[in-house]
Amino acid sequence: MDSAGLPDRIAAGIQVLITGDYPGSSSLNEGHYYVDRSNKFWALLYDSGLTSEALAWTDDEDLPRLGISLTDLNKSDELGSGHTRLEALVRRFRPQCVAFNGRGVAEDYVRQAGTRRRVEMGLQDWGIAGNEVFVLPSSSSLNTHPRLLGRDGLLLGRPGWWARLAMHLGRRSDGQGE
């Protein structure tokens, strides 16, 4: 893999652009997103209702056909200016929502953009290039928070926040994320 990191998995007509941080070495070596088996990303996509089929890291190139795209805020060649590239992607592809996979990634975006926006779990009161922003608990196995408080006062576990995004996007209507 080159020093720029993983290629974006993005296409026209996407509903959500899930934005992670810089990929781990396993992902870089394999050339796919969320390769590490301990990362819960692929299980969360399916269990939350964001996808109707169980997928694996080898399927990351197929996500755009399901209306889901992937990128990382920080590519190794950007030196803290990933926000500019992310904003350009959002302007070009116009997803309904940008979902940060982890509060830390959203906070890094805010820092890079030079704003003082408050970052909490769930739908934010600010957007990127006119598009909604939703902050998810990180899918990383290092995330051990049992429950997190959201901007709207909800206290949910990691699966609940991912289900909440699916409900917000109209991909789930059963209220299981509440």
Results as ranks from 00 to 15, higher is better:
166 A>W: 04
15 Q>G: 11
58 T>C: 02
10 I>M: 07
37 R>M: 06
90 V>K: 05
164 R>K: 13
100 F>D: 00
64 P>M: 07
6 L>F: 03
171 R>W: 06
171 R>Q: 04
81 S>W: 11
88 A>V: 08
106 A>G: 11
6 L>R: 13
81 S>A: 02
75 K>C: 00
136 L>C: 00
81 S>M: 12
102 G>A: 03
18 I>V: 12
32 H>T: 08
116 R>C: 08
44 L>N: 03
142 L>G: 13
148 L>I: 08
159 P>T: 15
70 L>A: 03
161 W>S: 12
80 G>T: 09
94 R>E: 14
70 L>R: 08
26 S>L: 14
39 N>K: 12
103 R>Q: 10
131 N>D: 05
142 L>E: 01
20 G>A: 14
139 S>K: 02
124 Q>G: 05
123 L>Q: 09
153 G>N: 08
160 G>C: 04
48 S>A: 05
54 A>H: 03
25 S>F: 07
109 Y>L: 02
65 R>S: 13
43 A>M: 04
5 G>A: 01
126 W>F: 00
58 T>R: 06
59 D>G: 09
149 L>H: 15
173 S>T: 14
153 G>K: 12
37 R>G: 07
133 V>W: 04
72 D>W: 06
171 R>N: 03
16 V>A: 14
104 G>N: 12
145 H>K: 15
39 N>G: 04
149 L>K: 13
72 D>F: 07
55 L>K: 07
71 T>N: 12
114 G>V: 06
12 A>P: 07
62 D>L: 12
100 F>K: 08
41 F>E: 01
25 S>W: 09
24 G>H: 14
3 S>G: 08
61 E>T: 04
178 E>D: 15
39 N>A: 10
34 Y>V: 05
142 L>H: 09
139 S>W: 02
98 V>P: 05
52 S>P: 01
77 D>S: 06
14 I>P: 11
75 K>T: 02
176 Q>I: 10
49 G>K: 05
16 V>H: 04
123 L>W: 05
128 I>L: 09
36 D>Y: 06
112 Q>S: 08
109 Y>F: 14
166 A>I: 06
49 G>V: 07
173 S>R: 10
23 P>C: 08
56 A>P: 00
130 G>R: 07
1 M>Y: 12
82 G>F: 10
32 H>Q: 06
10 I>K: 05
76 S>G: 09
51 T>W: 03
169 L>R: 15
120 E>M: 02
153 G>R: 13
30 E>I: 15
30 E>K: 15
103 R>I: 11
58 T>F: 00
70 L>Q: 05
7 P>V: 00
90 V>R: 02
148 L>K: 15
77 D>Q: 05
169 L>V: 07
46 Y>A: 10
146 P>Q: 11
10 I>L: 13
38 S>Y: 06
112 Q>C: 01
133 V>I: 04
139 S>A: 14
66 L>C: 05
8 D>F: 06
39 N>L: 10
59 D>S: 13
79 L>C: 03
126 W>T: 05
56 A>F: 06
82 G>L: 12
10 I>D: 04
